Amino acid sequence: KSEISQVFEIALKRNLPVNFEVARESGPPHMKNFVTKVSVGEFVGEGEGKSKKISKKNAAIAVLEEL
């Protein structure tokens, strides 16, 4: 299972809201860097990556460590 689906499963079991959002985009158009924030109830994680998908996955990994 992907880290993102694990976050949603845990949140569902604990009845917590999940929110993913792109917090920052930086860099030139051909080499963008994304920072995504995820919140699961009061737990927050942040991930960085060269694409929105990678930064979302890294944010999920960060919040899984707290859950």
Score class of each variant (00 low, 15 high):
52 K>C: 05
58 N>R: 11
32 K>G: 14
21 E>N: 08
56 K>N: 06
47 G>N: 01
5 S>T: 02
3 E>T: 08
18 V>P: 06
35 V>Y: 10
44 V>H: 11
2 S>Y: 02
44 V>M: 13
51 S>Q: 05
22 V>S: 12
53 K>C: 07
42 E>C: 10
25 E>D: 14
65 E>A: 13
4 I>Y: 01
39 S>W: 11
41 G>S: 00
23 A>G: 08
55 S>L: 01
63 V>Q: 03
40 V>R: 01
29 P>L: 08
12 L>F: 12
26 S>Y: 06
62 A>F: 01
44 V>Q: 12
20 F>A: 04
54 I>T: 11
25 E>I: 10
2 S>N: 07
13 K>Y: 07
55 S>R: 00
7 V>A: 01
52 K>I: 10
4 I>P: 01
20 F>R: 03
34 F>A: 05
45 G>D: 03
42 E>D: 10
63 V>D: 04
34 F>W: 15
66 E>H: 14
16 L>P: 02
16 L>D: 04
36 T>V: 02
16 L>N: 02
6 Q>H: 06
22 V>C: 12
49 G>N: 01
36 T>H: 03
22 V>E: 13
63 V>W: 01
12 L>M: 14
65 E>F: 02
63 V>K: 02
49 G>F: 00
67 L>Y: 00
32 K>T: 11
35 V>Q: 11
49 G>W: 00
51 S>V: 03
26 S>P: 08
29 P>S: 13
32 K>L: 09
32 K>E: 12
22 V>F: 10
12 L>G: 13
8 F>V: 09
43 F>G: 03
51 S>I: 00
7 V>P: 02
2 S>L: 03
3 E>P: 13
17 P>V: 10
39 S>Y: 12
4 I>R: 02
1 K>C: 10
65 E>N: 12
19 N>S: 14
8 F>Q: 09
58 N>A: 10
6 Q>N: 04
17 P>C: 05
37 K>R: 14
60 A>D: 03
64 L>E: 05
15 N>P: 00
55 S>Q: 01
53 K>D: 09
41 G>Y: 00
52 K>H: 04
22 V>W: 06
17 P>T: 14
50 K>H: 13
67 L>C: 02
65 E>R: 15
11 A>T: 02
39 S>A: 12
7 V>F: 01
27 G>N: 07
4 I>A: 02
24 R>K: 14
30 H>W: 06
53 K>I: 08
34 F>D: 03
